[in-house]
């Protein structure tokens, strides 16, 4: 399996897309840190990028890559290799290279200009989001043979998670403002990986404001490691679940 990952990785890392992505992230981070006198503000701007661009690129690149590797996958499938291994290798290859691009493009400047827990959480969230949206990309790809359709599904997923979902939930919260919604909010947040990534960073930069909320669950959530552990746990689930379904579908799929 490691061998296959190695070749998938090598293939992706050589492609211009991922290099361009890395360069884009790096230039943007570098620029933000140089333009902003306050590194915390730069991190905040970066957060917006991380929450929008990283899922978008991950899901689109993942989907396109999967369709482009159909022949390569066929080649591997005709070899004495387990399909599950092929699938996971492809996944890890794509996810790792996206995550690496992110770490180089955002992580390195962030740790250089603003070392500290906030940057660490930002980078961790970004890495998780890369993995999660690659996972969703692979799910979108195995759902249909049609490349255009697959990319369409991927884009819709991105739009849903990055904008639509929050809008709907905000609307619900506003509509039911008279009811206690603390626990419901936490639950609804955990149903969107982008929100989870955002909350992880918020726990660092806006803890002063977050601590302003009543409710024992909130307090314990923000007050200690429970919240962070929980958020990370949910992110892991967000990687695993789509990947599991995608893999199940892939193993039965006709190539």
């Amino acid at each position: 399996m490691n061998k296959i990952i190695k070749y998938v990785l090598y293939d992706i890392l050589r492609s211009r897309t991922i290099i361009g992505y890395t360069a884009f992230l790096f230039l943007m981070s570098f620029g933000l840190f140089n333009l902003e006198s306050d590194p915390t503000k730069a991190v905040l701007s970066l957060l917006n990028v991380v929450l929008l661009i990283v899922p978008l690129i991950s899901i689109i690149f993942g989907t396109i890559h999967f369709y482009n590797s159909t022949e390569f996958i066929e080649l591997l499938v005709s070899q004495p290799i387990n399909r599950r291994k092929i699938f996971l290798s492809e996944y890890l290859g794509v996810a790792l290279s996206l995550a690496m691009a992110f770490v180089v493009g955002v992580g390195v400047p962030a740790m250089l200009f603003n070392p500290g827990p906030t940057s660490i959480y930002l980078v961790t969230s970004g890495v998780f989001l890369s993995f999660i949206f690659t996972s969703l990309a692979f799910l979108a790809s195995v759902l249909t043979r049609d490349k255009a359709k697959g990319i369409g599904i991927a884009l819709m997923l991105w739009f849903y998670f990055s904008l639509l979902y929050d809008g709907i939930v905000m609307f619900i919260l506003f509509y039911f403002a008279d009811y206690p919604l603390d626990n419901a909010t936490l639950l609804l947040l955990s149903l969107n990986p982008i929100d989870l990534g955002r909350v992880l960073v918020l726990l660092n930069i806006d803890v002063s404001a977050l601590m302003g909320y009543t409710g024992a669950l909130y307090k314990s959530f923000f007050g200690n490691w429970v919240g962070i552990a929980l958020a990370f746990g949910l992110m892991v689930i967000w990687v695993m679940v789509p990947l599991f379904f995608a893999q199940r579908k892939f193993v039965k799929k006709d190539l």
């Binding site: 905040l44 917006n48 929450l51 939930v169 506003f174 919604l181 947040l189 955002r198 918020l202 909320y213």
Partner: peptide, 8 residues
Amino acid sequence: SSIMFLRS
């Protein structure tokens, strides 16, 4: 509770 959507 909408504070959780800060910076979204």
